[in-house]
Amino acid sequence: MKKTLLSALMVSSLAASALTSTAAVSAEQKENLNPWTDCGIGAMIFTENGTAAAISNVIWDLGTTAVSSNVSSQNSCGSNKAKTAMFIKATMPKLEQEIATGEGEYVTAMLELRGCAVTSHQGIVKAVRQQQQDQSSDTAEEFYNNLEQVVESKFSGACASV
């Protein structure tokens, strides 16, 4: 809870500062978004095995209360890319295993969050799987970059652009 709240506050602060510094986020900015740096995901205190989530949630079975899902929807960090990055960061070990297996509910959710048409899922998974084999990605950020590379190079028409 504590760390998640802190993380949420950090994300909120960053989102708030993004809102105040620019009245509107241009499409170009959204397309060039690096969620890891631009949305503070890299600074979120989630370890990739979910330990922080465990620590956060044992307090009175709380979950988190700081950020509503609608809070960030008006800025670039509410984009498909940013949401996908956060999803990957929070669920990395499971996601990585499902990509290795070639299917799974977390992979499906990730691609839906990324805004990719269902018909493209199988192809994307196959390409990401190949990418993972060729290029070691030990972190969530590397995994995200691999996914983005695949989407942008081969499936840009089937997925959301931002």
């Binding site: 979910g50 989530a53 465990a54 949630n57 979950g63 988190t64 999803f87 929070a90 070990p93 499971k94």
Partner: peptide, 11 residues
Amino acid sequence: YRHHHNYGDVE
């Protein structure tokens, strides 16, 4: 997914 992962996979 936050709860699914946290309760099911972590706890």
